[in-house]
Design a protein around this nucleic acid. Structure first.
Lengths: 359, 359
DNA sequence: CTTTAGCACTCACTATTCCTGAGTGCTAAG
DNA sequence: CTTAGCACTCAGGAATAGTGAGTGCTAAAG
């Protein structure tokens, strides 16, 4: 059977209505739409055809139709009308993003909150490094009170520090020696290259400050390893509960639990995929718990070889047009904000703070 | 009427059973308990008395009894048997805490997760500074590629940094001058003391590096202000949904929403209160949405003039004994871990393969 | 060949009724 | 003071009937 224009129009109407009402759509409701100059019988025939073709489903014989996964798919791919963001929407997204964000993990958290708010659905954000982290530079600052500050700069231009107590008293000269050794022997190598031999060698050249080497190496290794791991944040889980499809607490709980742990494993895999906004409708999701749920996600670029992802989780009946529009705009704005470092007060690459409390 | 020992015993049994089953407790169920050598009629009489005294309630004439808020209160204050933590429990809490935590905000997040996990309820943690933050020391490091690193140490011994691009090329000597000026003019003052006059004065003495002053002041003010604000994290909201009292989605949602915003405002007030573990039963909560819900919370000390709070939210029918025991132990362990800074600084091995299972 | 009116039919959902049994309060005997 | 016994209450489940939105099909009209 052929998918005529009218059939498409009917399908679109069904999806649109179902998105709005969350209830099966009957033929009569369709006829009442503007631009639908057919009788309910005609619509019924078309709907019967669409059902036979697998785009619609009937919960039971005497109910209206709801879109099937295939129906949503078609809708998302071809039928959906572009949602134009209002000036208000773009503005509120922009002002939200423009606030300065210092650290990547904070950024991830904040964006998750904003996106969840903008879509009224639970949101997930993640950020991951594309290249592996290495140290480009060490600095040691004697800080009085028997301690010194270790400042470490990474190839990503992020800077971290840690306040370290001195086990024995030490001269500024000793630290200078140590700094020189560190900078010559332990830069531009990954976490896995900090071998026992290297440690040994460095300690021997470090003179008086040798006892500090293990502490430093420990900190740096930890840091580098952490850089490699993906940074994930989830926000707005409670919003799921407002939706009629999640009146069933068990269902809601299952979904919420699964997006709490996705944090861990599933996401990195998805990040590999191609660019652009992607919609996963119900059964297209790999995770069993999300079979009834759709996911919309986009990637965006942060500077410094980092890549971010924004995702939204909701019922298959979600307003795909609106959600994808907002998500894409978010991603675009974020990428843009990071692409032009000096223009705003949010210069990428000039930001990073980290601290360590010694107590 | 007097509260005899037997009445107390019955009340305790009712609460205990209700905590376990979440269903009204009948007289027969009580008689079946060990150590209860009375007939159901006797128990019924006692329960009638307890009801008259306001410690128990009847959902309807022909149902068992459930504890009233006053009943829970009495239970928590006097009746509850101490819950002894098992070795396993103390050990798992200890190992969890011992993992190194770098930043206060990370700590707060992590503790929230741990506590939620330990109690199987949503948890809230917060940390706030008791004294206002000031800068004790500035360092400037020329970092090549036209930028420098600003390192700032606070009176709390926390160290922060930021990589800043140089608008014009600059000599190391210029930075040295600037550093000296900053250290002499802008230390030991709060965020509100960074006045326009001060800025002006510093800029004039800063020589070649004057153009950097605004950027630095901006960063520092921001930092100091941020230090003042309370740091809050919520974890495990989804656990609420597993409980029978929150089958009602609306109710669950209301509670979840309220503990999402408490983050912002309510908590600081509570932090003022006296020390020790505190239980707020149902209607004792100020927030209207939590009328049906109980809150258990404790304070703990972080070093450096900071104070933390751990809280757990659950149904009035929660296992107060277990929850308070675990919470107190958590608080105690955390305070202890922060009290002895040096003990485990050195034994920290270079070996730690995979320590980011959550986050 | 397409569209539409008409009609019988289906079936989820709601309301109503009935029934059951856990649990109660009271009374009177031990 | 305790307990056995008994009549009573009432939430919750099962069974039943009624309602109406929506369907598919047929046959007439365009």
């Amino acid at each position: 059977m052929e998918l005529t224009d009218r059939k498409k129009k009917v399908l679109r109407s069904v999806v649109d209505l179902y998105i709005r009402t969350a209830e099966p759509v009957g033929s009569k409701a369709i006829t009442e739409l503007p631009d639908m100059n057919y009788s309910s019988a005609t619509i019924r025939n078309e709907m019967a055809d669409l059902t036979a073709m697998g785009y619609l489903e009937q919960p039971h014989t005497s109910a209206g139709r709801i879109p099937s996964a295939a129906g949503y798919r078609l809708y998302v791919d071809e039928l959906m009308l572009d949602y134009r963001l209002s000036v208000d929407e773009t503005r509120s997204i922009n002002t939200a993003i423009e606030e300065k964000v210092q650290k990547v993990d904070k950024l991830v958290e904040k964006v998750a909150k904003l996106v969840s708010q903008a879509t009224d659905l639970p949101a997930i954000t993640a950020a991951a490094r594309r290249k592996s982290a290495t140290v480009t530079r060490y600095d040691l600052i004697l800080a009085g009170r028997g301690s010194f500050i270790l400042v470490v700069m990474l190839n990503s231009d992020e800077v971290f520090n840690k306040l370290i107590k001195l086990p024995v008293s030490m001269e500024e000269a000793d630290l200078k020696v140590l700094g020189a050794v560190l900078n010559s022997a332990m830069t531009d190598i990954g976490a896995e290259d900090f071998t026992a031999q290297l440690l040994d060698k460095v300690m021997r050249s470090a003179g008086n400050a040798a006892s500090l080497v293990p502490v430093i190496v420990d900190f740096v290794c930890d840091l580098l390893r952490h850089q490699g791991s993906t940074n994930v944040a989830v926000a707005g889980q409670a919003r799921l509960l407002g939706l009629p499809e999640y009146r069933d607490v068990d269902k809601a709980q299952r979904v919420l639990e699964s997006i709490d742990e996705d944090a861990l494993s599933n996401l990195p895999a998805i990040m590999q995929s191609e660019n652009g906004t992607k919609v996963l409708v119900g059964p297209e999701n790999v995770a069993q718990e999300l079979k009834d749920t759709s996911v919309v996600m986009t990637k965006f670029d942060i500077g410094d070889g980092m890549q971010g992802m924004i995702g939204v989780v909701g019922p298959t009946r979600m307003d795909y047009a609106k959600v994808t529009a907002r998500l894409s705009y978010f991603a675009e704005s974020l990428s843009k904000a990071f692409a032009k470092p000096e223009t705003k007060q949010l210069p990428q690459g000039t930001e990073d703070a980290d601290n360590h409390k010694e107590a």
